[in-house]
Nucleic acid binder design. Structure first.
Lengths: 150, 150
DNA sequence: ATTATTTAGTTGCATATGCAACTAAAGTCA
DNA sequence: TGACTTTAGTTGCATATGCAACTAAATAAT
């Protein structure tokens, strides 16, 4: 089996183009954040005040990576770290007024963006492909877990 | 349309797990290179002595990123930059003996790895999903090009 | 109660990435 | 031939990532 005929490289190239398109689209609309920062805004908009560690988990990111991502966003006044009074180790992460405004501004733009990206695909193609991704993801999780114990 | 129901995030999560599995598998077999470095070895093994800029293009990478990736690989004595005598701006990138040995060592491991990853998928699922990726990729290329001219 | 362990978060180090600005070598054109 | 443009590659700066090692706080164990 040749590497080029497997899913990995095709997914990689396509993801890269999606990221570039995402970035360009934001830039054209004067939205000055990265995709990764946007995802944090989205997660917080769905549920504000999440615990930092939790936020790292749901965004599939090492906690050290999140630490620095949030530091950048704090500098831009998009989010705030609020230490819990019950457990002094914990930070709750909150959207600032500024961060929320920016997120609201991105909402219609993201809708257009998602439509544009998936435009050439049928409903069935999208659904089937997502199902394949889910199957592959579950499979990889079991593979990776079983490696840990070796 | 909700972001979570689109292809992007599913592809992102799955790719991340594939990268982790790739990394772990190499580590278990005492192969001390990253996936990105491995791809360079593979491309050079298929066609040695490629021009540096060319190598950046086929690996979907900014030339500055490749500059530093190659510098790291040169330090590890995996590849060598050979300046062209016909055009003094150009470097031809060659596998070293050491780099080639390492690549040969990875070949059977990569075969197992690719089999393991795609194990739960049928031939049809793989083929259809690659076809969707290709369609999406072509679509994004036209989208991104048309943005440039705006 | 005091020690040991776990948990949340940060910092140091190494890798990887892209944009902008740069150098040097070729190519163009007038 | 001399000035303009293009091309290949590098360097500075900013962002992002993960592993290992660390601090401080909370739990568990004895």
């Amino acid at each position: 089996m040749d590497f080029q005929d497997t899913l990995g490289p095709w997914m990689g190239k396509t993801m890269k183009l999606m990221d570039i398109y995402f970035h360009d689209y934001f830039k054209q609309n004067n939205i000055d954040i990265s995709k990764k920062q946007w995802i944090i805004l989205k997660v917080l908009s769905d549920e504000d005040g999440r615990v930092q560690n939790d936020l790292a988990f749901v965004t599939n990111r090492d906690k050290t990576s999140l630490t620095r991502l949030l530091s950048g966003m704090e500098k831009k006044n998009l989010v705030a770290r609020i230490p819990s009074k019950l457990d002094k180790r914990i930070n709750h992460i909150h959207l600032t007024k500024n961060g929320n405004l920016l997120y609201q501004k991105t909402k219609p733009i993201i809708q257009q963006l998602l439509n544009n990206i998936q435009e050439p695909l049928t409903e069935t193609e999208i659904r089937d492909t997502i199902r394949v991704m889910q199957k592959l993801k579950e499979h990889l999780i079991t593979k990776i877990d079983s490696c840990d114990s070796n």
